[in-house]
Design a protein around this nucleic acid. Structure first.
Lengths: 198, 198
DNA sequence: CCGTGACACGAGTGTTTACTCGCATACAAT
DNA sequence: ATTGTATGCGAGTAAACACTCGTGTCACGG
């Protein structure tokens, strides 16, 4: 977050949240390149100067929005993963694919802003963090199981491939509506992908 | 391209190329957010005013850079695809994966700028065009062949999945060097993916 | 209830930068 | 050659906008 100073009193903690929420609203309503500090302040109902009591610059406000958003996604997916870690691979894959899609579908507009309007480099760390956390859980899961087929694949390699491919496909499915398959079919194909690479 | 006016004489056609090349250089050397019109003009050895003889605004200059870059990628991949269209699926998949990786590796810095520094929306159309062209060829190929297994899958669906997944993985492999597999392994896995989804 | 630091305000400032416009030069046509 | 047109120049302009700072208000400890 890199706040300029710690909010000590309650009202100032509220203010930080109000600012972040307002920034999110501006992103969704007006898009990233119409986001100005004055507009965020307006929407938050505070003065421009107040932003800079806690945030060192405009970028860090946006950063906070993306961090909170991606963290939420991460929690949802990891939670599902952990919840189904004792089931068989197919059920687990299906549940997690569903969880990911649901999480992405909760706020498609913000997803579009973060994934496509913002320069990727502005939230790449968040994204890498999401991927790493999911990958770690998945790798542990894969490492603890014998695949049914003949040869055993490297779990690190499998999880890298699966996480990236599934993420890319799921995001694109939610953002572009010209995909030649419906949601259910996508889930099936993602499951198949996971099993094939495992 | 959306040029402001057609360059008629030879020297003016040269100038357009010089400007585009300079913009590319600035992107690679300084990054997208340090790209200013004056800097591009400097690097091209022309005056700021001259940019606006042919380009309506700064965005269209960058657009032209990305369009040329992505077009080049497209040509390379489609060419490989077409060249191997009479071979068996595995050989074809391998050749195309190789071609894609080689094309991406030719200018990783520009790839990073275009894919990660630029807002995705600024070159999304280029990207969709690349995907569509590759997908069309692939779909025709898949449609003309019987898969060895039992059930026949929808070629439109397969090609959508394959193109997106392969693109995402290849780009990430080239840009992030923490992938837990080497180039050769990646090619194998991409081939396996293609065969599994076919 | 007073005093002190934390908090909030918002008009203003300084900088950055995309883009223009009046003029100069090169070229083509006749 | 001469004239009209296309091309090129670059100092200058105007607008946008991130961020500051001097002033005022609030809340809490004593």
């Amino acid at each position: 977050m890199a706040l300029r100073k710690l909010p000590r009193q309650q009202r100032s903690r509220d203010m930080v949240d109000r600012i972040v929420a307002a920034a999110r609203d501006v992103l969704v309503a007006d898009g990233y390149d119409r986001l100005t500090t004055n507009r965020v302040a307006d929407r938050a109902g505070v003065s421009p100067g107040s932003l800079y009591q806690y945030f060192p610059d405009k970028a860090s406000i946006v950063e906070e929005v993306t961090a909170r958003y991606v963290d939420r996604l991460t929690e949802d997916v990891v939670a599902s993963l952990v919840d189904h870690v004792h089931e068989d691979p197919e059920a687990m894959a299906r549940a997690t694919a569903e969880a990911l899609l649901s999480a992405l579908e909760r706020d498609p507009t913000l997803l579009r802003v973060v994934w496509q309007e913002l320069p990727v480099s502005r939230h790449l760390d968040d994204r890498l963090g999401l991927e790493r956390r999911v990958r770690d859980v998945l790798r542990a899961y894969l490492g603890g199981r014998q695949p049914p087929g003949s040869r055993r694949r490297d779990p690190a390699r499998s999880s890298w491939l699966i996480v990236l491919a599934v993420e890319s496909l799921a995001v694109r499915f939610v953002l572009d509506d010209d995909a030649p398959l419906d949601r259910e079919e996508l889930v099936e194909d993602l499951v198949a992908l996971g099993l094939a690479w495992w």
